[in-house]
Design a protein around this nucleic acid. Structure first.
Ligand SMILES: NC(=O)c1ccc[n+]([C@@H]2O[C@H](COP(=O)([O-])OP(=O)(O)OC[C@H]3O[C@@H](n4cnc5c(N)ncnc54)[C@H](O)[C@@H]3O)[C@@H](O)[C@H]2O)c1
Ligand SMILES: NC(=O)c1ccc[n+]([C@@H]2O[C@H](COP(=O)([O-])OP(=O)(O)OC[C@H]3O[C@@H](n4cnc5c(N)ncnc54)[C@H](O)[C@@H]3O)[C@@H](O)[C@H]2O)c1
Lengths: 210, 210
DNA sequence: AAGTGTTTGTGAAATGTTTCACAAGAAATT
DNA sequence: AATTTCTTGTGAAACATTTCACAAACACTT
């Protein structure tokens, strides 16, 4: 199926590309140069036909009888996902959760950098020493515009989540990773990914009881 | 579609039930007694036909011309999801992230209680005062078995995630909420829900660039 | 250089999910 | 009591995703 030249790619395929990318990174660390769809699929926890179908949306870069070049495939997937170069991200709401995220050193490796955080109380004493600047929420619009930030992590209380997101969008943010347990209203061209831990637990609860 | 008496319910339907439940909770807080599929669907960010189809998997509890009774529907959904009574959960790995999760007071309201946490260094000085006991990882098997814990939150480093999950499963855990960015290998009857923030960001990255 | 074995890429089929269209049931109104 | 209005519940259709089955392409061996 196609629309304006490019095939329409299932959302789940995009998620799986990220998983493949991580599996490929491990292979590369172990000095492995080529991998078959069978082996990579197993590492990723999917069927090999699905992996091949997923990759086929973007072109053909395997070698029949041999498999895929690990480096080449990594690069290709990175390029498609838009993480080939480091993406600037801001975080809003430096509380319990925000602080944990800020002190996580794993994002850089994956192509993202939290370049600043914003809070209504930027100067409140916090337990941890953080590398990134914590600024007042009023400085957010100018900062986001100036640094052309397109993505934000939202870890503010539920009560202010919608207004905060409105402000972020107004400043030019197009993608939001939301931790507040609320359905945010956003324009069509803005994307929200929700991380709701209670829902994940509830989901587990359902499937383990049935 | 049916298998052994009960209809097969789409995975996504289960996720949406959780969302409906939260919207219903808000309605109840606002003293609203009945709600139409149209209104509830809007609050949940889905189409009303989808909401009705989702509910239809479990029976028929609406009143035509009127809508659904908020309390009754809440109870019914809670019952289906298995969160009608408080579920005990344990957390393994009390680091940056684990500590943030432990100090979060939102889970009880949603039907879950983290009753204990485990770490290789339970006595390390931590910044926050936590209500739950932090125990040595060696005490985990006995504790989990004794309290019939079926769900665990995993926030240990990647390097020890697989062995930790093996131990949890051995002790009787059936559902795991995993924060370590790795594909865990588990038996068929055990369920893993992964929360991978880098993948969520990557996903945003793809959709906002295209 | 020919033959053998392996693995990709891909239409077609199967399966799964969402949306449509509308009959049927209940409340509200006259 | 009859009529109108509203809203649910549900087969059928449309759409989306996964799996199957196998031809085509390449590597490796002899
Ligand atoms: N902590 C967790 O483990 C956890 C788990 C699931 C969901 N959540 C959700 O994540 C969000 C944050 O949780 P938390 O535990 O870190 O809460 P928190 O109260 O510790 O932190 C919230 C932070 O947001 C800041 N803030 C408040 N209003 C603001 C505004 N208008 N603009 C900018 N900053 C503002 C506060 O100063 C505070 O630092 C909440 O919506 C919560 O429901 C948290
Ligand atoms: N912090 C974040 O924001 C964040 C974001 C995304 C993913 N993650 C992932 O979550 C996990 C935890 O991250 P973190 O930042 O809290 O790490 P952390 O190093 O701060 O915490 C890990 C904790 O696990 C404990 N631990 C180590 N081995 C253990 C074992 N065998 N049994 C029990 N406990 C053990 C350590 O003592 C430590 O307290 C990691 O896998 C990380 O990749 C974290």
């Amino acid at each position: 199926m196609k629309r304006n030249g490019r095939p329409i790619i299932p959302k789940k395929t995009i998620y799986r590309l990220s998983i493949y990318l991580r599996c490929l990174a491990r292979l590369r660390e172990n000095g492995i140069g080529t991998v078959s769809s069978e082996a990579l699929a197993k590492a990723a926890g999917v069927k090999s036909t699905q992996l091949r179908k997923d990759l086929a949306y973007f072109g053909t870069f395997g070698t029949r009888g041999l498999g895929y070049d690990v480096s080449e495939l990594s690069q290709k997937i990175s390029g498609e996902l838009g993480t080939a170069q480091l993406q600037p991200v801001v975080l809003v709401g430096v509380g319990h959760l925000g602080l944990a995220l800020l002190s996580y050193r794993g994002f850089e490796k994956e192509g993202f950098e939290i370049i600043a955080a914003f809070d209504t109380e930027p100067n409140r004493k916090r337990e941890k020493k953080i590398a990134q600047p914590i600024l007042g929420i009023r400085e957010m619009p100018a900062f986001v515009a100036e640094h052309a930030v397109k993505m934000a992590i939202l870890s503010v209380p539920v009560a202010v989540a919608q207004e905060t997101v409105n402000a972020l969008i107004k400043s030019g943010v197009m993608g939001i990773l939301n931790f507040a347990p609320i359905v945010l209203a956003v324009p069509e061209d803005v994307m929200v990914n929700n991380v709701n831990l209670a829902i994940e637990l509830e989901n587990l609860s359902y499937f383990i009881q049935g």
